[in-house]
């Protein structure tokens, strides 16, 4: 073996490093290119919708090019007032229904989940099994009986059928999610709180809930998205256009008369996504912060 001088050794090392770096960079570029293409496929419909919202109506389905020949920003203000009623009303309706649904679902499901996760009562396992079984029943099966029920009570044509059930812990999926989350919180905390003089409700409120922000945020986000986007529920229970929610109103751009206002429809569709976007951005921080600050992980 011949001894290498320090100079030679470092030269060899450098050339290896350069080769390795080059290879790494090439791999990175390939990976990013692949991901970029994938995401483009995913967001294409959204891009198409955004572009269509500023295209002249005849270009939307007639022209291959994504780029509009002229930008019709007027679709937005026109669309907002484009129906029999202003979108201000529909947004107000949607916000009422969605906010109450989010509050109701988050509170009631966590309440039920606390009982399943922490309290002892007769028939707990049977109730839990029953609740889990409701997960397997498709929504459309209960649709008609539910409609008849609300009709009898006289709630059809009000927001009540869309809101009240949310306060009654009807969503087995979220209950299950939270039961799982609560179960992994240390029981010692409950017991310490018990000795500290907490009632079961106080333990739920002062110990369990604050430590469950990630689960609560998940529930809030999904409830918000699903309620905001819900078309079927409002379609069935709301008949008066003054009670319409945003998705229901959007449909009126098409069915109103023979000439459909597609440009305005897409403009309003874009706007209808904005609240979801804001809500998500705001609450997903809670999911992360919740995990970080609870100090459990």
């Amino acid at each position: 073996m011949t001894d290498l001088s320090i100079q030679e050794a470092s030269d060899i090392a450098r050339s290896y490093r350069i080769i390795r770096d080059k290879r790494k960079r090439r791999a990175t570029i390939t990976k990013h290119l692949f991901l970029a293409i994938c995401s483009l496929v995913m967001v294409y419909p959204l891009i198409w919708m955004i572009v269509s919202s500023v295209k002249p109506d005849n270009e939307i389905f007639g022209n291959i090019s994504l780029w509009p020949s002229e930008f019709i920003w007027q679709n937005y203000p026109d669309g907002w007032e484009g129906l029999f009623l202003s979108f201000t009303v529909f947004y107000k309706n949607s916000i009422i229904v969605t906010v109450l649904a989010v509050i109701g679902n988050t509170l009631s499901c966590s309440f039920a989940a606390y009982a399943f996760a922490r309290l002892e009562f007769k028939g707990k396992n049977i109730f839990f099994a029953l609740m889990m079984m409701t997960l397997m029943i498709p929504y459309h099966v209960v649709l008609i009986p539910q409609y008849l029920l609300f009709l009898k009570i006289g709630w059809v044509n009000t927001f009540l059928p869309l809101i009240v059930p949310r306060f009654l812990a009807g969503d087995a999926f979220f209950i299950f999610l939270m039961v799982q989350f609560f179960r992994q919180l240390p029981r010692d905390l409950d017991e310490a709180a018990m000795i500290d003089g907490c009632s079961p409700f106080k333990i739920y409120w002062a110990v369990i809930l604050p430590l469950s922000l990630p689960a609560l945020a998940t529930t809030a986000i999904f409830t918000f998205i699903w309620t905001w986007e819900d078309f079927l529920g409002p379609l069935i229970y709301l008949n008066d256009i003054r009670d319409y929610t945003v998705p229901l109103a959007l449909r009126n751009f098409i069915s109103q008369d023979s000439v459909s206002m597609f440009g305005q429809l897409f403009a309003m569709s874009i706007l209808s996504i904005v609240p979801i976007f804001i809500f998500f951005i705001f609450f997903q921080k809670f999911i992360i912060r919740g995990i970080a600050t609870s100090g459990l992980k």
């Binding site: 709180a193 000795i195 609870s294």
Partner: peptide, 26 residues
């Protein structure tokens, strides 16, 4: 009575001051 747990069982979301005061507040 009061109890000290092996896992300490401090309330993770409360400051030390709140942890100490919690039982008294109740």
């Amino acid at each position: 009575l009061s109890m000290v747990f092996q896992s300490y069982a401090l309330y993770p979301h409360m400051t030390v001051r709140k942890n100490l005061a919690f039982g008294l507040g109740n």
